[in-house]
């Protein structure tokens, strides 16, 4: 464990050093008057501001987090279910799959106002927005996972008499678990982002709402403080999914390699 920790430290120190250099350059350029503080607050100012408005930030963050989490879970679940249905009923797949791709090309920012017209300013339209964003990567990844089974394993299962359902439960579904997690990771990195966008469109709480408020009130440090928090939340959700993946997929011999 300690050895592993040291090794990962070894792997990240170049980028950690770069981040430190960039932060220092940023701080210096603001301190030296190169960039005015009202345009770009320095890192130290942002941290101070964060500490000052911490309770309000947390209050708003909790709204964003629950929106992102519920949207992520709902979207992932729907994506999974849709993928299973499309896979098991080929005619439905043929009919729905092209539409699925088309829906993904409708910009989220355009769906938002429509959802607001239909459903008002409550939680539901925001939730639907996050949900739409999250379900697509999961369903596409799962669909690929179901199809991308080892033909020798498939032949084996058919030779010993496995039916369609057994083939799905014993081969296609477990095979798709790795794909599921790559879909979940993409969805996780979109979830917080889309929750913030949803809050821009009209909310009385949440980091998106707080950002708009701070921006209108000429409080650049607060805008930056919310940005920092949004990035951290997004990373945390991604990290959580990656952690669960590690716990679930223990059979993989080497990263990227499925069979030895």
């Amino acid at each position: 464990m300690g050895n592993k920790g040291r090794r990962s430290l070894h792997a990240i120190w170049p980028s950690a050093l770069l981040v430190l250099i960039l932060l220092a350059a940023w701080q210096l350029s603001v301190d030296s008057g190169l960039v005015p503080e009202w345009q770009l607050p320095s890192p130290i100012t942002i941290v101070k501001e964060m500490a000052e408005v911490w309770p309000r930030l947390m209050d708003n963050a909790s709204a964003t987090v629950s929106l992102a989490l519920i949207g992520f879970a709902g979207g992932a679940l729907a994506g999974f279910a849709l993928a299973a249905i499309l896979h098991l009923i080929p005619i439905v797949r043929k009919a729905v799959y092209p539409l699925l791709v088309v829906t993904q090309n409708v910009p989220v920012i355009a769906i938002g106002p429509i959802l607001t017209i239909w459903l008002g300013y409550g939680v539901l339209p925001k939730l639907i927005l996050v949900w739409i964003v999250c379900f697509f990567p999961v369903s596409v990844a799962m669909l690929n996972g179901f199809k991308d089974t080892d033909p020798t394993l498939r032949n084996y299962m058919q030779m010993i008499g496995a039916g369609k359902w057994q083939l799905f439960m014993r081969l296609e579904l477990p095979n798709a678990v790795t794909h599921l997690f790559s879909g979940l990771k993409i969805a996780a990195s979109y979830a917080v982002l889309s929750a913030v966008v949803a809050e821009w469109l009209g909310a009385d709480k949440g980091l998106g709402h707080y950002m708009i408020l701070s921006s209108k009130g000429y409080e650049p440090a607060r805008v930056f403080a919310s940005v920092v928090l949004i990035v951290l939340l997004s990373l945390a959700l991604y990290g959580l999914v990656a952690l669960v993946e590690k716990l679930v997929i223990r059979w993989r011999p080497v990263k990227g390699e499925v069979r030895s």
Binding site: D150, T152, Q158, M159, I160, G161, R170, L171, R259
Partner: peptide, 29 residues
């Protein structure tokens, strides 16, 4: 289908199942 036991050229063990669970799978199918 389902009237034969089968051993293919590639071992065709499910990589996500333990050795014992692979044998059990064939028997359960």
């Amino acid at each position: 289908r389902g009237h034969i036991a089968y051993m293919p050229q590639q071992a065709s063990l499910m990589p996500w199942r333990s050795v014992a669970a692979n044998i059990e799978l064939a028997l359960q199918v």
